[in-house]
Structure formats: structure tokens, C-alpha cells
Amino acid sequence: MLNLSHLSKTYADGTRALTDINLSVRESEIVALIGGSGCGKTTLLRLIAGLDRASAGAIRLDGETIHEPHPAVGIVFQEPRLLPWLTVADNVAFGLDHLDRNERKARVAHALEKIGLAEHGTRWPRDLSGGQQQRVAIARAFVMHPKVLLLDEPFSALDAFTRASLHEHLLGLWEETRPTVVLVTHDVQEAVTLADRAIIMQPKPGRIFDELPLALARPRDRAALPFESAVRRVLAALDQSLNPVQASPQRERDREAAALWW
């Protein structure tokens, strides 16, 4: 279990990026952090990745405190960040130094097959399209068999069709080892497609505004009604988070329930 308690991050210039974040993510749960720009989503992810230090509070993975990159935590960035001097296969194998040759090869081959790039192992990253490169980056994180996988808007630079196919590749890989996933996104559709729970964040300073369970059956049909209504609920919560004058989300929901009742 991934546990964030009273997490805050204040930068040297006094900017408060995050304040008092409390969040628990169950094993194998997929959580989407969603919110407008400047709400600290990426900062939060970088703290969990151990790339930055929290100013206060703690991050624990199965009881172990994280303050530097942890072997069981993987991350996929917004850009593929492949190493241009390594072939596609060598990029995927980048973190597998500790394995012997055969096992390394087998794992890489399997991952490349899962992302549909089995034929591309010997090519250079620059020969791939943006979507293909991002798939390789996802494979590079998955072959490490992380307990926690962090995704920092990994699909935001891609067109809608490529994005949808990448969602499938991602879920295909996820099924195998079922890591805990924390996904940062500003795309509500994406959150509802992938996540078990949406965490709505609010900016200045970054904090959690509300969370919504997205208990839809998988595979999710984006044209189906429950999907539509889940998207609408997340959008409504986002609207509220952007409009601070409104009542608290809990009260809002009570009022909705009351309205239905009457």
C-alpha cells in the first residue's frame, strides 16, 4: 500500500506547491490525479518518485519511507525520454542490468510484443513515431516489475486515436503484474477510462479537493451510459474545485441526493 501523510512541498522561493496531502492507494489500484495546471499534480508525482524531497510529511510504500528513487517505484514521464544512443530493445532493457542475459532478453522481447513493437527492437528511437516512443517508455518502466507505477501525463502529447490505443496497451501490460498506478492527467475521459478512483486537485496551494470512486466494470466502454455519467460526475467535481465560493463537495452531494428524493 502506498501511503501519503501530511505531505507538503514548499519551494525555495516560497511557492507552496502542495499542502497537507493525505492519500492511501491500495495495492493494484489505479488512481488518477486530476486538476488544472498549477495544482501540484506533477510535483506530487515527483515526490513519490523520490526525485524531489517533501518539505513536510511522509511517503510510505508498505511501511517503508521513500525519500529517494526506490527500486519498486517506476515512472513514465510526459515525454518518452528514451536514450537516443540505445536501440529500442536496449532502452527497454536499461534498468535490467541485474538480470542475466537470457532473462533480460526474454523480458524485453515479451514487453515489446505486448506493446506491439516486437519487430522494432533493433531500431533507433528516432525512427519511431511519438506514440511508439511513449509505448517503449512504458515498456521500459513495466519490465522492472514495479509495485508502484507513476504516469505523468504520458499521453498528453498524442492525438486522440493514438491515446486510445495507448490506453489499451497500458491496461494490457498492467494486467500482467497489476502494479499500483498513480496517473496524473488533465483529461477526464482518460481518468475514467483507466482509473478506479479520481482524485480532484485544487491549485494555489496544491491540495486534494475531492475524490470520486470510478467503480466501472472493465473493459470499459466509452460509449456506454455509466461511463458517460462518471465523466459527468468528474467534470462536475472539477467545476466545483475551480469555483471556491461553492459549498463543500459533501454538502453539494447531499443536496443533490435531497433533490432527487423530493
Binding site: 518518485a49 526525485l51 528513487p69 527500486p71 517506476g74 515512472i75 514521464f77 515525454e79 525520454r81 536514450l83 544512443w85 536499461f94 534498468g95
Partner: peptide, 27 residues
């Protein structure tokens, strides 16, 4: 810097970071 960060994520030692990321990048 973003590639150096990839090295950090994979927890490379200073020497390995130099050999596997800095060296090929500056060649």
C-alpha cells in the same frame, strides 16, 4: 537534464551515470 533524471530513476551510481548517460550524450 531530463535524461540524467532517467538515470536517477533507475538509481544509477555516479560512475554508472557518467558511463551510461553523460558519456554517450557528450560524444
Amino acid at each position: 537534464r531530463k535524461l540524467v533524471e532517467v538515470g536517477r530513476v533507475f538509481r544509477l551510481s555516479r560512475a554508472k551515470l557518467a558511463r551510461r548517460i553523460l558519456l554517450p550524450a557528450v560524444l
